[in-house]
Computed example of a mutant assay.
Amino acid sequence: MRPDAATFVFYGEPVLKVEALAALSAPVCGIYGAEDPQPTTNRAAAARFQSALAEAGVEHDVTCYEGVGHAFWKDMGQIERRETPQIAAWRQSTTFLRTFFDG
């Protein structure tokens, strides 16, 4: 039976303990800004998170968008104006959710 919820991460310090991640029963989507000045939510943190998810065998879609920092997607106006990479992050998140809930 498919669980009722998936995990979606925008920023925030990711869990890196493989044992804890292995307990997840649904996929994870993570969206980060490559130039985030916070060491727990930048490009390196996203890469460590992706590696830990892979090692734990958790289906995931983690992307680190270049040229932006923390909180780069602030409002839907950015999507309406088709700003990049916000529109790409919006498409990634809506595709992830549709795939999860329709699948």
Rank of each mutant, 00 (worst) to 15 (best):
A71F: 11
A46F: 00
A54R: 09
A45I: 03
R43H: 13
H70C: 03
G30E: 13
A20P: 04
Q92K: 03
F101R: 02
D102E: 14
A71T: 09
L97M: 14
F72N: 03
A56Q: 00
T94G: 04
S51L: 07
A5R: 13
A44T: 08
M76T: 13
A23R: 14
R2C: 02
I79T: 06
D61W: 15
F100K: 09
A54M: 03
V15Q: 10
Q50M: 13
D102T: 15
F10H: 07
T99H: 15
I87L: 15
F100V: 08
F72D: 03
T41S: 15
E80G: 07
F49M: 05
Q38F: 12
V9A: 14
W90D: 01
S51E: 11
A34S: 09
V18S: 06
S25A: 14
A26R: 05
A46H: 05
G77R: 02
H60K: 03
A47C: 07
A45T: 00
I79K: 00
R2F: 02
F100M: 08
L16N: 04
M1S: 11
G77L: 02
P85A: 01
W90A: 07
A46Y: 00
R48P: 06
D61T: 08
A45Y: 06
H70D: 05
K17N: 15
N42K: 05
